[in-house]
Design a protein around this nucleic acid. Structure first.
Lengths: 202, 202
DNA sequence: CTCACGATTGACTCGTCAGTCAATGCGGTG
DNA sequence: CACCGCATTGACTGACGAGTCAATCGTGAG
């Protein structure tokens, strides 16, 4: 029994991740993806309308998982700091599990968001808004000080994590199991200390 | 008297900033740059070896200014927190002064270090290292706690700022004079509170 | 066994651009 | 004025690569 239809589609997506990570979205040919997947050129166009749609699909697939993870975290009855820790954890684990996919999402999609559809921007904004909501709620409850707007806090939080991933992606930071765990703690410790009510407001 | 030779080169660079910001590096033609500059197609190749070299030049020009600003800040005999504040200030002001150029640098270069020469990575790393040095020195002096490695701290700091700029660039955050000033304070307050010795280590 | 239909193939088309180059303009110099 | 050398022009070329499509394969139903 050979690969079924759905499998081929998956193979193309997985191959695309490797190719995009290696050569960049603009630096690769559709034929590179087909070759990497061990599939004929035309089959890519059987499953996807265009090269763009392949990238879109990868992004949406993963980003929706992230959004769901954030919502799930927010549903729990735990301290705001713990929520942020779970989110940081999830993102770092996503990188640990599939660094190439995260590289594509961080490096290629942001750039693409510029040129193609605003669709992605809306999705990305959803994540920021969810994080901002968590911060806003924490401020209402008095857990976080309210001298920083939730929007800025969300940006600082997400930006810090993303930059650490970027450091790993471009080998500007050493990476390994120890660093992954360390990073979760560092990011949350740093950002939350700054947001915490107990922190001195300078 | 019409524009001199050096002026034309400058005009091409300035036009490139506008075009790259509007259409992205990959989404524009060299002829778009020439048109925007009000100059013949071939002249671009008189001053630059290739389309890539135009982007390279823009990036290096600006990044070297940033590096010099960081070094100058570090030379002063002021508290580490004040140093970070000056750096954040410089970056935000760079955006205020020329948002299109910063957009190009952040979106097309920093995030594209992948496809682009590794040359840029070395330059980018220099900035991170300078910031990390400031943090390391602060830890030695006991001003910052040493539970966070200087490298991570540098990433968190730079990442937080860059993400705020990205928010402005993609209109995910409101921008204006007030926001620019606010942002400087927020980023430094948040990150430094987390790094400060006085902050609770969780 | 045969038909039908989706899966699969890869050669081909067709537009798009980066980069070239021969021709022309123009300011300075002797 | 005559000449030189750099600045400037824009039509042209050659490569490249996204997307098309007609032909072939494989399989499940009748």
């Amino acid at each position: 029994m050979s690969a079924t239809a759905a499998d081929k589609r998956r193979m193309i997506l997985d191959a695309a991740v490797r190719v995009f990570a290696r050569q960049g979205f603009n630096g690769c040919r559709v034929s590179d993806i087909a070759d990497e997947a061990g599939v004929a050129y035309g089959l890519v166009y059987h499953y996807f309308r265009s090269k763009d749609e392949v990238l879109d699909t990868l992004f949406l697939e993963r980003w929706n998982v992230l959004l769901e993870a954030i919502r799930e975290t927010d549903r729990q009855d735990i301290a705001p700091r713990e929520k942020l820790r779970q989110i940081a954890s999830f993102i770092v684990d996503s990188y640990r599990h599939d660094p190439e996919l995260m590289k594509v999402i961080i490096v290629e999609v942001t750039r693409a968001a510029n040129s193609f559809g605003q669709t992605h921007l809306a999705k990305i904004r959803e994540a920021y808004d969810l994080i901002a909501d968590i911060v806003a709620k924490a401020q209402d409850e008095g857990a976080f000080k309210d001298t920083i707007t939730p929007q800025f806090a969300a940006m600082a939080f997400y930006g810090a994590i993303e930059q650490v991933l970027t450091g790993w992606i471009f080998e500007l930071l050493p990476q390994g199991e120890a660093e992954f765990e360390q990073a979760k703690g560092f990011v949350v410790e740093t950002i939350c200390a700054g947001l915490d009510r107990a922190a001195p407001t300078v």
